[in-house]
Amino acid sequence: MQSIRISKLPPYVFTMINKLKKEARAQGMDIIDMGMGSPDLPVPKEVRDELCNAIHTKHINRYPAGDGIIELKRAIAYWYGKRFNVDINPSEEVVVLIGSKEGIANMSAAFLDRDDYALVPTPTYPIFFNSVIMFGGNLYNLPLLPENDFLPDLDSIEPGVLRRAKILYLSYPHNPTTVCVDKDYFKPIIPWAKEHRIIVSHDAAYTEICFDGYKAPSFMEVEGAKDVGVEFHSLSKTFSMAGWRVAFVVGNAKIMKILAKMKSYVDFGCFNAIQKAAVRALELNDEIIDETVAAYQRRRDVLCDGLDKLGWKHQRPKATLYVWAPIPEAFQEMTSLEFASLMIKETGVAVAPGVGFGEAGNGYIRFALVEEEARIQEALERLAKL
């Protein structure tokens, strides 16, 4: 019954993990859930208040503008200028999204034909490779290997693939490996993309969750970036608005126009009341971000210090709300899904198996810092008994 495209999608391992969590809870087990990156911190009160106020305004129930209300577009442009010193035209260079996942999926739908390749690092955020498969493009994996500092090797791409490549998907700070880059990393990518006529699509969802003095750059900061690409941002992590489903993409005006056209055929955009609340969130950014980052940094330190004591190898992240760790030596004969399943059954600690982010992630697991410090400490005590 399902289409050939859907049948080609890899198994969604998070569905399997959710089933195991459900079964464990049914047996009375207390699950410490560090699997999905779904923030537990509260949405700022001022943002919640703005949503409540907006709901009571006249005509708020009507269909929204598909590519975003102008007030939010202006707030995004102002935020970009203040945060990254980048000039964004709110009318032509911004599209508001129902979450970055929707925007990235529509990116693949709008630009990939049957003969086109998308260049996708692996492991990565699953929507990058899944959207390519769903919309009939050809997937070309760029393995992120420890010997390359988990960075894609663009020089290794086969010439025949390069001639047919349409999109390069990047994301820094990176999910799931937590690898970070500086602005100089992006500089050679721009002439490379121009030479090969490739769109650069950069997901920057974690630029605001940075630790130890690191400050993540924007791809748009680099001269010429708008000529070749776009950048996605989300309010899910910075403002804990994951369930609200609001994000945005900025960059090349021609790409924005095509993406907005694509969206106009498949959705009506984000609920206007949520967009108005998003304006308030961006206005508050400087007032709340330090407290948010401090909370995640404390959690990171508790988890990483504990993993050190357990002898579990890992890299202490400079950004994101994740810790990416190889499967411990005593369990390395297991797949990441098998080990994550064992963790739930034996300890009640849920993590994301690395294979869920692509086959190259199979020797790893990902912890999400979405539990309070005391719960993370309890998780470590349970893991010590494995």
Rank of each mutant, 00 (worst) to 15 (best):
F232K: 03
V323L: 07
G213V: 11
Y214D: 04
E158H: 14
I4R: 15
T177E: 09
A278W: 11
H314N: 12
L168T: 01
D184F: 05
W312K: 01
E71G: 04
D267A: 10
A325R: 01
G363F: 00
I76Q: 09
V302H: 15
Q315Y: 09
I70M: 14
G28I: 06
K261W: 03
K58A: 02
G35E: 08
T15D: 09
M220G: 13
I76V: 15
Y63N: 12
A350S: 15
Q2F: 05
L112K: 10
I289V: 14
E373Y: 12
P11Y: 09
I344V: 14
P121K: 13
S91K: 14
E291V: 10
M343G: 04
A319R: 07
N362K: 07
E283Q: 05
R114C: 01
V355F: 10
F271K: 15
K187Q: 13
I133M: 03
P143M: 13
G358R: 05
T207R: 01
D155V: 02
L235Y: 08
L383T: 07
E195V: 01
D153L: 10
T57S: 08
F150P: 07
K313R: 10
P217C: 05
E158D: 15
I157M: 08
L386E: 12
K8P: 07
A65H: 12
H59R: 05
K73H: 10
A26I: 04
E378W: 00
S336H: 06
Y140G: 02
V250C: 10
G306Q: 10
K194I: 07
R245T: 01
